[in-house]
């Protein structure tokens, strides 16, 4: 197996970042050779998500090594370790299946540090005789780690979350929101087009267009702006961060439009909250948010979302009924 990336590998890396293609981007689990490894060569363990595998083999350029790929259903090491698929049992199974004890004459397995979420080093040693060394968080540090005699610097232990890291994640935040957008657009257009005489296309368009724009802005602020500018938006709560970003965008767009009072109030209520909800989803993609914190946020945020969404709909319906002189 080469440590070089082909054009196809680069294209695959891009596709896996932007679409559900990532769920099928897999390599066959098992043992791979990089360079010309022998009985003394190191064994590096990784996931069968092709982007994980490719990142590891790229970092091993110039080395002779074995890569043991676990079946993680095409999920990266950290997420798979969280689910348990990158775990003790799977590692033991693959070590035995590859008959690793006959291939190498040492007892070292280098497992990515983030794999420790699913791999119990002691249990692996008891079951296979192989000693798990938790390597660096990032594959790019592997050569330095090996050269230092399997020692990590403090830096190599820490997971980062740079602006570029966050930017790369945003397509997969925008995608799911955009999937729900057509439904939102349909409801908005029907609501605005609805007249006693039927649905008027002209009214639907004139009244609904501002709402469609505001909806897109909420997605943009919640799924793009909040993740990218995460540490620069005040407060720790993602729901609050998303609401602030959403409020800025909603206000900016509202200034360019002349909505009636009730639809305007309704917009100011609903769209910042939509941005907040979308931003809260990003907790699932960060490297530093924990379950207890997210649970606490949801406990407060979910009732707020439900109550105020209902309120904004009621305001819109009230507006509609007063136009029709019903009330």
């Amino acid at each position: 197996m080469s440590s070089e990336w082909t054009k196809k590998d680069y294209w695959g890396a891009v596709r896996s970042r932007i679409s559900a293609f990532r769920m099928r981007y897999a390599v066959e689990p098992g043992l791979y050779a990089i360079g010309e490894p022998g009985a003394e060569s190191d064994v590096f363990v990784t996931a069968n998500y092709k982007l994980s595998f490719d990142t590891v083999r790229k970092s091993l350029k110039g080395l002779n090594a074995w890569i043991l790929v676990l079946d993680t259903k095409s999920i990266n090491v950290w997420c798979a370790a969280g689910k348990g698929t990158f775990g003790t049992d799977e590692l033991v199974k693959r070590v035995n299946e590859a008959q690793l004890d006959k291939i190498v004459n040492h007892k070292r397995l280098v497992v990515p540090q983030l794999g420790a979420v699913g791999v119990n080093a002691r249990a692996v040693q008891q079951a296979t005789g192989f000693r798990v060394h938790f390597g660096p968080v990032y594959a790019k540090d592997v050569p330095a780690y090996v050269n230092a005699g399997y020692k990590k610097t403090d830096e190599m232990r820490l997971v980062k979350f740079t602006m570029l890291d966050r930017l790369i994640l945003t397509p997969m935040e925008i995608n799911p929101s955009m999937k729900k957008f057509p439904l939102f657009a349909l409801i908005a257009l029907i609501l605005f087009g609805l007249q006693p005489s039927g649905i008027l296309f002209k009214d639907a368009w004139a009244g609904g267009l501002p709402f469609l724009l505001l909806g897109l802005a909420a997605i943009f602020s919640g799924a793009f702006i909040t993740p990218v500018f995460l540490p620069f938006i005040p407060f720790r709560s993602f729901a609050v961060k998303g609401w602030i970003a959403g409020m800025i965008f909603t206000s900016a767009i509202m200034k360019t439009m002349s909505l009636d009072v009730l639809p305007a109030i309704s917009s100011y209520i609903f769209f910042p909250l939509a941005s907040s909800y979308i931003a809260l989803q990003f907790t699932g993609s960060t490297t530093f948010t924990g379950m207890s914190g997210v649970r606490k946020e949801l406990k407060i945020a979910l009732p707020v979302y439900l109550i105020f969404t209902a309120l904004s709909v009621i305001l819109l319906i009230t507006d509609k009924l007063s136009q029709w002189n019903v009330i």
């Binding site: 969280g82 791999v119 989803q281 907790t283 379950m291 207890s292 997210v294 949801l298 979910l302």
Partner: peptide
Amino acid sequence: LNCEFGAIKVDAGVGCAAALI
């Protein structure tokens, strides 16, 4: 998971809003 002596306890899980919802 890796403390052999049971000196650490944590309620581990996915911190993902969608999963919790």
